[in-house]
């Protein structure tokens, strides 16, 4: 058989169809059928008609928004100071901020839990606060990395030009650096916001028993309710699609797991 480079892509294309496309189609089918395989909108109605599940959606949004804002407020100065500083070994310091990504998250949350227990006594007293602290602790490196990459790529001449033209530090930051770092902000936000809506293990481990969107899937899974779980997955997928379209994050900067290395 004649070998061609194109044919190398075939196994991967088949793989993607089998394990990415097919599961999504099955998900859509299950979401709109009942146990007897008949078409139904009941799963959709039971999500949007139930104040509890709508409350879950709202609570997820609240946690995700607060976590994202806290991460941004912490990560932006870190990335900015680091990118602007003149220290010799910047990569080493950056590594320090990124390294936690490579330590298993469940072990890191265990560590956080121990220390929070000492500080707060009873963890169950501050469920929302702990959820935000836990998520921030877990996701902060994912926000720092894309921000640093973007800010450090900004041409220093632009800042100097702004200064030469009479802008003070503040104005240079607000009108030059900040707008140019927006791609980094967008990619950082997308790294944090979605996991914060779905990573229910962080809440579980910190004794926050309130459901977020991910916990709904977990509970349907535990109850063998594939149809209900599929509907929640589909709703999450729709949210992710909207989010991706809004942020327009195409191929660039998919920093999960670190664009590092």
């Amino acid at each position: 058989m004649h070998f061609s480079r194109k044919s190398l892509g075939i196994p991967y294309a088949v793989f993607l169809i089998a394990f990415v496309l097919a599961p999504l189609l099955v998900l859509a089918f299950y979401a709109f059928t009942n146990g007897q395989g008949q078409f139904t909108m009941a799963n959709l109605h039971s999500f949007f008609g139930d104040p509890n599940t709508l409350g879950t959606l709202f609570y997820s949004f609240a946690i995700a928004c607060v976590t994202t804002i806290v991460c941004l407020l912490l990560a932006y100065p870190v990335a900015y100071f680091l990118a602007m500083s003149r220290i010799a070994n910047k990569t080493v310091v950056l590594m320090l901020f990124v390294m936690p990504m490579w330590i298993n998250f469940s072990l890191r949350i265990t560590a956080l839990k121990e220390i929070l227990t000492v500080i707060e006594g009873n963890l169950a007293m501050y469920p929302f606060l702990n959820a935000v602290i836990g998520m921030t602790y877990d996701f902060l490196p994912f926000m720092i990395l894309p921000l640093y990459t973007t800010i450090s790529k900004i041409d220093g001449n632009l800042r100097e030009a702004a200064m030469d033209l009479g802008a003070d530090n503040m104005r240079t930051f607000l009108q030059v650096t900040l707008p140019l770092s927006i791609p980094g902000i967008v990619s950082g936000v997308s790294m944090v916001f979605l996991p914060a809506m779905t990573n229910y293990v962080v809440l579980d481990m910190l004794y926050n028993s309130t459901y977020i969107m991910g916990s709904l899937i977990g509970s349907y899974f535990a109850a063998y309710n594939w149809h209900g779980g599929s509907m929640i997955s589909l709703i999450l997928l729709a949210l992710i699609c909207i989010f991706t379209l809004l942020t327009g994050s195409g191929e660039e900067e998919t920093a999960r797991g670190g664009a590092m290395l």
């Binding site: 394990f19 599961p23 999504l24 979605l194 996991p195 999450l236 992710i240």
Partner: peptide, 21 residues
């Protein structure tokens, strides 16, 4: 495009959908 799906998707959804299929 298909390659991008598991990247942006929540792991819960990826895991659940593969389990279902």
């Amino acid at each position: 495009t298909l390659n991008q799906v598991p990247v942006v998707n929540a792991d819960v959804v990826t895991g659940f959908s593969i389990c279902i299929l």
